[in-house]
Amino acid sequence: MIALHLLTGLCVLAGLVFFAAGTLGLLRLPDPLTRLHALAKADNIGLGLIALGVLPQLVASGAVLAAAKVVAIWLLLQLSSGAVAQLLAEVAFRDSETGADDPDGAAAEAGEP
């Protein structure tokens, strides 16, 4: 039982670290493409770890259906954040390509989810 709690604690902690990294990337990195890169990667792994951490608790307490839902949520998020990141990247790329990049970086601002 203790091992279970230990595992959960560790995973959730690691997940939080990744989330922090993602947010740090969002604030510090210069242009939209790199920010997107940081956010998409870090948040996905972060969420995966937290889901991994929570799963044993749910399974142990018998709520198998809830566990399945958590996994489904994680899958949906993988899909949607990946697709959205792709879309934003296309917009950001096209703006930087056509120089429509407004001087005060409004496009960059728009890139922020």
Binding site: L76, L79, S80, G82, A83, Q86, L87, E90, V91
Partner: peptide, 18 residues
């Protein structure tokens, strides 16, 4: 108003039925 994007269509094909 964005041009066609493969990612969006892929996402739609998967998520809409669900």
């Amino acid at each position: 108003p964005a041009p066609w994007s493969g990612a969006l269509e892929f996402l739609a094909r998967l998520v809409v039925p669900v």
